[in-house]
């Protein structure tokens, strides 16, 4: 474990807590893409099933359980408890355009042609693009509540921090994970436009608004 990865994981944890806080306090999931949240459930289940046969550490297992549990809970909140506040008519990104290419890529690029490793690759590719329905929705509505932007910022910072972690591991441990690095760079890249508006507007106390 190094500081970059620890801070990255904590940022990921924080993002989910911020999202839960937003939903619970406003009693609404307005502005949140159900499709993105459903994709995260698929990502976590596909990747963290190794929970059942591979023990790394208590930290590792606890985080995996938390990510699977909290993402399913968020889906439940959106689909049942706060269903009237969820507006599917603005959540229109076609997720098959993400699922199919990710499935094909995971069959080509994996570290071992076996179901668990293919699922792992699939989850890495899918995670890198899972935010697109959410960003697409933001683009359509043109604005967002501050707390929603804090959620997105924490989520973006999480993968951004994994990049120095991989550089650090390359030099200290001599290992490189080309699949995760490539997908991680793509994933972080998708946030650049968002980060620009977030750091220049929201953190200066202005409203998150995209230019028309």
């Amino acid at each position: 474990m190094n500081l970059f990865r620890l801070l990255g994981d904590l940022s990921h944890l924080a993002s989910i807590l911020v999202l839960l806080h937003k939903i619970q306090t406003s009693r609404s999931c307005r502005g949140i893409s159900f499709k993105t949240q459903a994709l995260y459930v698929a990502v976590f289940v596909a990747r963290y099933l190794d929970l059942f046969w591979r023990y790394i550490s208590l930290y590792n297992s606890a985080m995996k359980v938390f990510f699977i549990g909290s993402s399913c809970y968020i889906l439940y909140l959106m689909k049942y408890r706060y269903r009237p506040t969820n507006d599917p008519s603005i959540d229109t990104f076609r997720i098959e355009y993400l699922l199919v290419p990710c499935a094909i890529l995971s069959l080509i690029f994996n570290y071992n042609f076996m179901p668990t490793e293919i699922l792992w690759s699939f989850s890495i590719f899918l995670e890198s693009v899972a935010i697109l329905p959410q960003l697409f929705m933001l683009q359509r509505t043109g604005e967002a509540e501050a707390i929603t932007t804090h959620y997105l910022a924490a989520l973006g910072i999480y993968r951004a921090l994994y990049i120095p972690n991989w550089i650090y591991r390359y030099f200290t441990e001599g290992v490189i994970d080309p699949i995760a690095v490539t997908a991680g760079i793509v994933q972080t890249g998708l946030y650049l436009d968002f980060f620009y508006v977030y750091f220049t507007k929201v953190l200066q106390g202005q409203k998150f608004e995209l230019p028309a």
Partner: peptide
């Protein structure tokens, strides 16, 4: 350098 995935990452 080995190309492999570190199994301890989340």
């Amino acid at each position: 350098v080995d190309a492999e995935r570190p199994k301890d990452e989340l």
